[in-house]
Nucleic acid binder design. Sequence first.
DNA 1: CGAAAAGGCAACCTTTTGGTTGCGTGCTGG
DNA 2: CCAGCACGCAACCAAAAGGTTGCCTTTTCG
Lengths: 113, 113
Amino acid sequence: MLQGRSVAASLRKGAPVFAALGDETRLRIVARLSSDGPLSIARITDGEAVTRQAITKHLNVLSSAGLVHGVRRGRERLWELKPAPLDDARRYLDLVSARWDRALARLKLLVED
Amino acid sequence: MLQGRSVAASLRKGAPVFAALGDETRLRIVARLSSDGPLSIARITDGEAVTRQAITKHLNVLSSAGLVHGVRRGRERLWELKPAPLDDARRYLDLVSARWDRALARLKLLVED
DNA sequence: CGAAAAGGCAACCTTTTGGTTGCGTGCTGG
DNA sequence: CCAGCACGCAACCAAAAGGTTGCCTTTTCG
């Protein structure tokens, strides 16, 4: 089971992933990539209110968090999701909410004597 | 199935939650609250490197995201997790990674002719 | 070939964020 | 009852984040 060191590891690895997801525009990009597959910067940009350069920055943030990766193809660059870190984030949330559920259960037991 | 409007709603509701989790200190606070139950600000502070006021700010951020809520008890204030938004975040990740898995599957099918 | 499409790079600006220090207030326990 | 603990409020600060504009390079295609 996940205990001790691995929780600490989850924390350091998890924070950048959550931070990357903590922006509406980036969350929307992730959603579009997840439903429409690999997209070029230009295609991601139209549909958004901000500049292409802003989108590029967001993609770089997502990339640094390991959530996404882009590959040059001719004159354009296609970006696609990398699913692994998403799973990590989900696992972290599972871990926390499981522990919280147990804590609640203990508390309930205590209160009910 | 989750489609259209509900995805958009997930995005607007999800971003603040992820943003709140996107900080190592706050993630650590959430972890401690999930394993140790309700804690006072003072108790949260020792074990962390920063000031009590910094911790207070972090708690307010977590509170604004609906992740946590504090209740005054005598001269101290106890903070505890509110599990619901965590579930929302987890559901969002489930949604995205499920869609991504399907997209990958479609792509694979296409490539393998 | 040459215009237009796609994008990289860099400078710059404003707002937010994470943190601090200083001081005031309320509760409590010996 | 009063010393001290736990906390709130406010001002302030440096760095990071989100965004823009301007310009240059590479690639495509009629």
